[in-house]
């Protein structure tokens, strides 16, 4: 084997890994937010990501798969997921917040199975593919190596979502209340704030991010049943290594996960699949509570 690793190959691989990390961040930050504020380990988060992808495809096809259809899909699909989650929160979750974590885990697992079957009933078992608008198709040459344009687009969108989340949680009143509720929800309730609606808002926002992740990932993968399983495992691992409930921890965890996977493919392709999990094992061995401060 006479393969040598060039700087160009390394650089493009880092870029692709970072773009993959952006999707993981958007999904896992939503999961982390719900974990932090509501203490709910939402296994159904992956199902909402899958519904986001299927909905985005449906909207894009309806509007002709051009730039208009793509942008509409990216905006409307997360809102549809948010609406579904609002109904689920008011009808189901709002009555269960005080239950034990194990009970909540089983409940959300059941919900994931139900949503999986509903997805199959609604969209069927066929593969689907969302096409990016022409401007985001193909690749650009960076240091003589092809990097897909859509991945560069994700590199822009990811940090924008991160900044928006930061501004929301630190500059808005409801964001500050949600952060306070994450630390001490009894105290937030004691000072007269309607905690029920704060929780509803936090849940819907977290699920919106799952839907956004599903919509954004749709042009890079096949939209299929079962895409929820892979992402929920990765998202939980990211949340755990980043620090439970810490959104910036989700960012750090996503970067580690995405880049280690991408570089693993380049450095040791025969065993590429173990790299991100190896990183998780090393981190949890050295720092069992995660890299950043856990709110639990």
């Amino acid at each position: 084997m006479d393969v040598t690793i060039t700087f160009a190959g390394f650089f493009s691989q880092v870029l692709v890994g970072l773009s993959r990390a952006m999707i993981l961040f958007i999904v896992s930050s939503g999961l982390s937010f719900i974990l932090g504020v509501l203490r709910v380990p939402n296994v159904a988060h992956g199902s909402l990501y899958m519904i986001g992808a299927f909905t985005a495809h449906g909207i894009a096809v309806l509007l002709g798969e051009g730039m208009v259809g793509f942008l509409a899909a990216m905006i409307v699909a997360p809102l549809v997921v948010a609406l579904i989650s609002l109904i689920a929160e008011r009808a189901l979750f709002s009555h269960l917040y005080e239950r034990e974590h194990l009970m909540l885990l089983l409940f959300t697992f059941s919900l994931a199975l139900i949503l999986g079957d509903l997805t199959k009933m609604t969209w069927g078992a066929d593969y689907r593919s969302l096409v990016a608008p022409p401007v985001l198709q193909g690749s650009v040459s960076i240091f003589d190596t092809a990097v897909p344009r859509y991945n560069l687009f994700l590199l822009v969108v990811g940090p924008l979502v991160a900044v928006a989340l930061y501004l929301f949680s630190s500059k808005t009143k409801i964001g500050k209340i949600a952060r306070a509720a994450a630390v001490d929800r009894e105290m937030v309730g004691a000072i007269g704030i309607n905690v029920s609606w704060v929780f509803a808002f936090a849940f819907v926002l977290g699920c919106f991010l799952a839907g956004l992740g599903g919509a954004l990932v749709a042009p890079t993968v096949s939209i299929t049943l079962g895409m929820d399983h892979t992402v929920i495992i990765e998202a939980f691992l990211i949340v755990i290594i980043g620090g439970l409930g810490n959104i910036w921890g989700a960012m750090v965890g996503s970067l580690i996960f995405g880049v280690s996977q991408s570089l693993g493919v380049l450095l040791w392709p025969q065993f590429a699949i173990v790299f991100p999990y190896l990183a998780v094992v090393v981190i949890l061995t050295l720092k069992p509570t995660g890299l950043l401060k856990s709110v639990w």
Partner: peptide, 21 residues
């Protein structure tokens, strides 16, 4: 060279960019 991914791996772009390099 050889590359193996888990069955159903959703995003194969990192694998293809590495192989093309």
């Amino acid at each position: 060279g050889k590359t193996w991914w888990k069955p159903g791996e959703p995003d194969l772009i990192p694998y293809l960019t590495a192989i093309q390099a």
